[in-house]
Design a protein around this nucleic acid. Structure first.
Lengths: 206, 206
DNA sequence: TCCGTATCGGAGGCGGCCTCCGTTTTTGTG
DNA sequence: CACAAAAACGGAGGCCGCCTCCGATACGGA
């Protein structure tokens, strides 16, 4: 069998059986631990729960960010579902608002998630596995913002990146647990009032 | 010399000379390291730079939060100075705005500072040394908010705690380094527009 | 100068991160 | 089915930071 044929064979069959098993076990264990203890969960504990040694975890996921990105990938389906629901909306302002909430929920998946996300957004280096999902979200936000701006619902000074940052910040705040649901709602309302383009009429004061 | 007299003597002279020396050295080293590496700086490195053993650091400051609170205490003077400057202002809205900026700068003193602050605000237990400064800031914010509300400049649905949380969030965002100065300004502007009570006239759109 | 006492600081246990390298599992072949 | 090459595994171990004993030390009063 030639080199080429062997490569094709491997592609068809996929990775070795134990590799698939271990990867799945690691992802499941990681999700559980991230949910329980936040993104700072002990990697050794995750490996132990998955029934593998530490080295196997690091071979599959060279860094905490890589593992985090892989776990988040499994959660992206939910975000896609919400995007299709949003796509059915007529109102661009409503679409933007729902998208911001969807992102906020996504960022709140695990406590402490905003930190590594912002690190990825700052470094902006492709070797950080979180950079790609981060960029996708920023781009999507910008599209919603521009669409709402064309419809005259959002002030033109606002950038998509600004609202992305705002959503991450609110998610961070939620993750700290120091804000009750009402405070969070008021904060979102503050932001909403801020980015919305003002219409002529006066809203009820207070 | 009686027990009582000896106690009075100690109060007059203050703590032992080495205690004072070590405490000062620890605070100086801690400030340097917190500035360089954020609030997660290695406590052992701080102790080493201060020329003391780890045990001495822990005797003086039983927890990272205690050390942090002590270092912040030395920074509180700056905040007090800004409060007196603010007190000279006539406009309650301007006073609130400047106060929010003063808090944001205070929270930005060290990278990662918002985290333990919010932990203190959440737990709200007096054994956390950060609870007291946190509560003072919240109370002060509420006073500024109520004053601005009485003057009709701020929506009555807004709580001081909400704006405290907003200031911490912006400081957190600044600390991540993912937001440039312009984005931060736009975000502050969003929040400002949000909490400000609307007047009748329409502002320039965009 | 000496003593009692408060304070000091190094040694060491623990847990998490990460890597080397001998061992095992898988896969494809004869 | 047995075998061999290749791929993957996992435990041991080095490193570092956190935190705590406890013998050694420095301070302050007499």
């Amino acid at each position: 069998m030639s080199e080429v044929e062997r490569a094709a064979e491997r592609q068809r069959r996929g990775p070795r059986a134990d590799v698939q098993r271990n990867r799945a076990a690691l992802l499941a264990a990681a999700q559980r631990h991230f949910l329980m203890s936040g993104v700072g969960a002990s990697l050794e504990a995750i490996a132990k729960e998955a029934g593998v040694g530490p080295a196997t975890l690091y071979r599959h996921f060279p860094s905490r960010e890589a593992l985090l990105a892989a776990v988040l990938q499994t959660r992206a389906d939910e975000l896609v579902a919400r995007r299709t629901a949003i796509a059915r909306l007529d109102d661009a302002a409503e679409a933007l608002e729902q998208w911001l909430r969807a992102m906020e929920d996504y960022f709140s998946a695990f406590s402490g998630l905003p930190e590594p996300l912002m690190a990825a957004a700052r470094e902006h280096r492709p070797d950080n596995p979180l950079t790609l999902p981060c960029d996708l979200l920023i781009t999507a936000t910008d599209e919603y913002v521009q669409s709402a701006q064309r419809a005259g619902h959002v002030r033109t000074s606002v950038r998509g990146y600004d609202l992305f940052l705002a959503a991450v910040s609110v998610a961070w705040l939620k993750g700290t647990g120091a804000a009750d649901a009402e405070s969070l709602d008021r904060l979102r309302s503050l932001l909403h009032t801020g980015y919305r383009r003002r219409t002529g009429q006066t809203q009820p004061a207070g």
